[in-house]
């Protein structure tokens, strides 16, 4: 006997009560539990819905759903980073490598032209710090509005806000003291090229994560999940 809509909804509530907040993860678990319950009922038609559910949940072991959620989060973070890495590598192939080299050269020329490394670096760092800050703020607002409108939270949206874990690495604040300290030293051309390369590659990674991979992943998920609509 197939489960009713009310029972399916009960399964969603059950997963939520067992710390699965994300609708995209709940969906798969609900279908799994439902299949198991239906199979049990086929063998034993007298078994109650609650007893069958209890037996199915037990199969997930003492950790319950937490292992599934944890591993799914890790897997999605990895997927995000692999997408970023894929696009990043494409900047080292023709014709994009020309653009990358041109940007590095432009930044280097700017430092030489203004003859004031401190201000050039400071302005760059502020820009590289503000952009992810605005991104996180706007994404957080977007996630909240989706939750308010539909009552659903999506794991991949939470992954996007964290840039697949890259947010910790793409925080220029970590490097700022080292970068600004450079101003006190007399720097060789090689050192200036190294600084230019770092700033440009950092900006490139940030650009790819925010403006290429994020919309790309959101589109992938919208295509995959019929309940998700891009607002």
């Amino acid at each position: 006997m197939k489960l009713s809509n009310t029972q399916t909804q009960e399964l969603y509530t059950f997963t939520q009560k067992h710390y699965v907040d994300w609708y995209d993860v709940q969906t798969e678990l609900v279908d799994h539990l439902a299949n198991g319950i239906e199979a049990q009922r086929a063998i034993n038609p007298n078994i109650s819905f609650q007893d069958a559910l209890k037996a199915e949940f037990k199969k997930f072991g003492i950790m319950g759903f937490s292992n599934v959620v944890e591993e799914k989060t890790k897997a999605l973070n990895k997927h995000y980073r692999l997408l970023v890495w894929g696009y990043f590598k494409s900047f080292f192939k023709l014709p994009r490598i020309i653009l990358t080299l041109f940007l590095i050269w432009s930044y280097y020329s700017m430092m030489v032209f203004f003859n004031n490394i401190f201000w050039v670096l400071l302005i760059s760092c502020i820009v590289l710090m503000i952009v992810p800050f605005i991104f996180i703020y706007r994404q957080g607002k977007y996630v909240k509005s989706i939750k308010k409108k539909t009552g659903k939270k999506w794991l991949f949206n939470s992954i996007i806000v964290q840039l697949g874990g890259l947010i910790h690495f793409l925080n220029i604040g970590i490097y700022i003291s080292v970068i600004l300290d450079l101003e006190r030293r007399v720097l060789s051309t090689t050192a200036l090229v190294a600084i230019s390369s770092f700033i440009i590659l950092f900006g490139l990674l940030l650009y790819i994560s925010i403006f290429v991979v994020t919309p790309n992943l959101r589109q992938q998920m919208a295509k995959q999940h019929p309940d998700y609509k891009i607002a």
Partner: peptide, 25 residues
Amino acid sequence: YPALHKLEAEGLLDVEIAKVDNRLR
């Protein structure tokens, strides 16, 4: 499920969600 999600993240599996028996699969 962790194994499936890992294989999906590595690009070895593709996913398709369909409505079956009034629920998503």
